[in-house]
Design a protein around this nucleic acid. Structure first.
Length: 161
DNA sequence: GCCAACGTTGGC
DNA sequence: GCCAACGTTGGC
């Protein structure tokens, strides 16, 4: 997998977990429902097939990175924005210039162990990751490729006490 | 369950 | 266009 560009997506496992992704057909799912402009910008204008994606579980005990995935499609309009029965319905989104985009995400592998948010915050070389910033509510964020490599490496080893 | 951050809504 | 109220996110 190319490691030039890396991202992180957050999901509450009670809604959609990394195991759910592994169990999906082709271990792939459309990452729909993103309704934040910054996240939209990343999906539409930055993320491309093959980019690495860290899969982060939020609102868990503990929260942390549990899996490696990849972008598995070009960005395309999120069809749920046009569905009046969907919670992500956006009445004002023009059909010819849709507001919201998605990309397919494919599971690569579960990490040998969770790398917790707490561990990231404590790690001298990971503590600057965007996900470690207080009150960061973005559901899609950039990851420094060096941070990606280090975090994957760390997941192969026991956590520091 | 609390609460800080922050995006959205709506009255004016 | 301002800004208060409200809703959501997500760690703790």
């Amino acid at each position: 997998m190319p490691m030039e560009r890396a991202f992180l997506v957050k999901s509450e496992p009670s809604t959609f977990s990394f195991d759910d992704l592994l169990a999906a057909p082709n271990a792939t799912t459309p990452w729909d429902g993103v309704r934040n402009h910054q996240a939209r910008h990343m999906i539409r204008d930055e993320m491309r097939p093959g980019d690495a994606v860290l899969f982060y579980h939020s609102s868990t005990t503990p929260p942390g990175v549990v899996g490696l995935a990849e972008v598995a499609s070009e960005p395309r309009p999120d069809p749920t924005q046009f569905d009046p029965h969907h919670t992500g319905y956006d009445e004002g989104s023009p059909r010819d210039e849709p507001r919201w985009y998605l990309m397919d995400v494919r599971a690569v592998r579960a990490l040998p162990r969770i790398v917790t948010l707490d561990e990231i915050k404590r790690h001298e070389r990971l503590k600057d990751m965007e996900v470690a910033r207080r009150f960061n509510r973005l559901s899609v964020m950039r990851v420094d490729p060096a941070h990606l490599t280090l975090l994957l490496d760390l997941s192969e080893r026991q956590p520091a006490v």
